[in-house]
Amino acid sequence: MTPAIRPRLLSRLEVGGGLLVAVALLAVPLVAAPFQTITVCYGLVFAIAALGFNLLLGYTGLLSFGHSAYFGVGAYVTAELVKYLGWTSMEAYVVAGIVASALVAALFGIVCVRYTRIFFGILTLALSQVLWSLALKLFWVTGGSDGLRVPTPTLLFGTLAPTKDKMDFLAYHYYYYVLVLFAAAVAVMWLIVHSPFGKALQAIRDNETRAEFVGVQVRKYRWIAFVVSGAFTGLAGTLWVPLNGLTTPDILYWQFSGRIVFFVVLGGFRTFWGPIVGALAYNYLETYAVGFTVYWQLVLGLVLVLLVLTLPQGLAGAVEALSRRLRGAPAVA
């Protein structure tokens, strides 16, 4: 088989651009101040959640308004491991976070994937609110609205203990740790959406009836996508906790789900890279909006309105459209 016949997994542009971004991300802790590095680190974590979310929205055509649930499960499982078992290993947190969020997604998914459109959205929202109320009311287990504190974990199976200056540790060791997992998540998601399974999801998105006619088991495929999506978001929740130092029910609330939707709309859900760009951009936008004005909600609201009116394809979508126009390629619908 000659390579020319086989469709390439990555275009030359993607390889080049990816390398450039990878070098830039690797250089962040070396050139940027700790605060900037930590802000990028938050962005990378949110980007993992956005990638997971977009498997449902962009590739399967399901708008979930309850992804806070899986992010929260990842975070709370970590906090409970600290509280009850005294575990300190990040690897243990990551495995536990992924498994727990996948399990919860599997359970919720059984109910949710039977429906589509608004019914799917409302169901996911309702189920995530159940977890939120539990976190709020089971005060003795979850700390109620005060949440649970999570100390800085040890990395690489206990071989890398936190240094005395927590900020330095987060802005260097932990950043690279997150970066590696982010790269892995991107690679895995790339493979998923370009696999036959991913193509089947896109077929479901475009025409459910036709997909069923060609033999795709629509409900089963949706359920698998739901579980994978939940697991990615759960991984993000687990990685977020040490960065934040504590977890509160805020991250289980529907507004946090809305924030994940915002990431993806901001970046553009029709491209693979859109959610990543959106998560990084949103994180910067929020950090600085809160810092510079007490009317930060107004700022975010205005951005969202302007975005929908002027860049309905999101940041990444707009850049892509622009580059197509510059190259004289036909626009895609």
Partner: peptide, 24 residues
């Protein structure tokens, strides 16, 4: 004096304190 809105929520407040110290 730099001011910050506590209503942003606990997580955002943690981030904002870090920003105030490390960036401002």
């Amino acid at each position: 004096t730099l001011k910050a809105d506590e209503a942003a929520g606990t997580d955002a407040n943690v981030k904002e304190l870090r920003r105030m110290k490390l960036s401002e």
